[in-house]
Amino acid sequence: MAEINPVLLKELRQRFRNKKASWLLALYLVVIGAFVLGFTYLNWRNAPGFYQPSRSQEIFILLSVAQLFLLAFVTPGLTAGAISGERERQTLNVLLTTRLTTWQIIWSKLVSSNAFVVLLVAATLPLYSIVFLYGGISPGQVAGVFGFYLVTMFLFGCIGVACSAFFRKTGVSTVTAYGLTFALSAGTALLSVFLIELDRSYRAGASAASSLPLPPDFITGVAQFLQETNPIFVLMEILGTNSILNDFNFGLPYWGVYTVLYLAAGALLLFWSARLLFPRKNN
C-alpha cells in the first residue's frame, strides 16, 4: 500500500492538533451561520408565521457567495506561509537535505492547507440543509457549487504557495497573495464591466470610443473570457442568474473554461514554486 507523504502527514498532525484550527472552524461556522440564520429571521419577520419557499433560493445564493468570500479570505492566508514559514522557522534547509523532492514538499503543503479549507466547507453542509428544507434548489446545483469551490480553492492555494516560495517573509507573501486573489476576483470583474460599457458606447457610435482600433467583437470576446475566469461571475452562473455573456463559443462551456484555466494556472504555479526551491548557482 502506498504510504502517505511524510510532510503531508506531519502538516495534518500539526494543523489539527493546534487549538487554532478548532477556533478558526468555529469562527467560520459562526460567520456563515449568522448570514443564513439572520436572513431567515428577516424573511420570517417580514411575514410572521409564514415562510416563502421561493426565498430559499435567495438563501442559497447568499450562502454560496458568502462562502466564496470567506474562501478567498482563508485559503491564501493558510497557504501564504507554507514555505516562507519554514524559512522563518529555519526548518526548510533541513527538509531540503532529506530524500523528499521539492515537488513532494510543495504538493504536501498545498494539500494539507486545502484539506483544512475543505473541512471548513464540508462543515457548512448542515447549513445547506436549511435551504433543502424549503426546496427550490437541485442537488446538482449544490454539487456544482462544491465542485466550483474545490477548483477555486486549488488556484487560491497555489497562489499562496507560490508567493510563500518566492518571498522570504510570510508578511510580504500574505499581502501579495491577497492582492493577487483580489485582482483575480474583483479585478477581472471590474475590467469586464468596463469593456462591456466600452463596447456599448462603441456600438452606439460615441465619439470617444469610435476611434478605438479594436473590433467590437474582440472587446466583447475579451469581456466574456474575463467573466468566465472570474469566480463571482462563474458562481452566479452556476446559481442560475445568467450573468455571463454568451456571444462567443470558446469550445467549452463556461465552467469548462474556468476549470481548465484554474487547474492549469495552479499546476504552473506549483511547478514554478518547486523550481524556486532548487539550489542555485547564485543566491
Binding site: R13, Q14, N18, R89, Q90, T91, N93, V94, T97, T98
Partner: peptide, 17 residues
C-alpha cells in the same frame, strides 16, 4: 543526501510535534 546528515548553524524545530 542519503549519505549525509546535516545540522546547520541555525535551525528550528516544529511546534506541536
Amino acid at each position: 543526501r542519503g549519505r549525509i546528515g546535516y545540522m546547520p548553524d541555525f535551525f528550528g524545530v516544529y511546534d506541536d510535534l
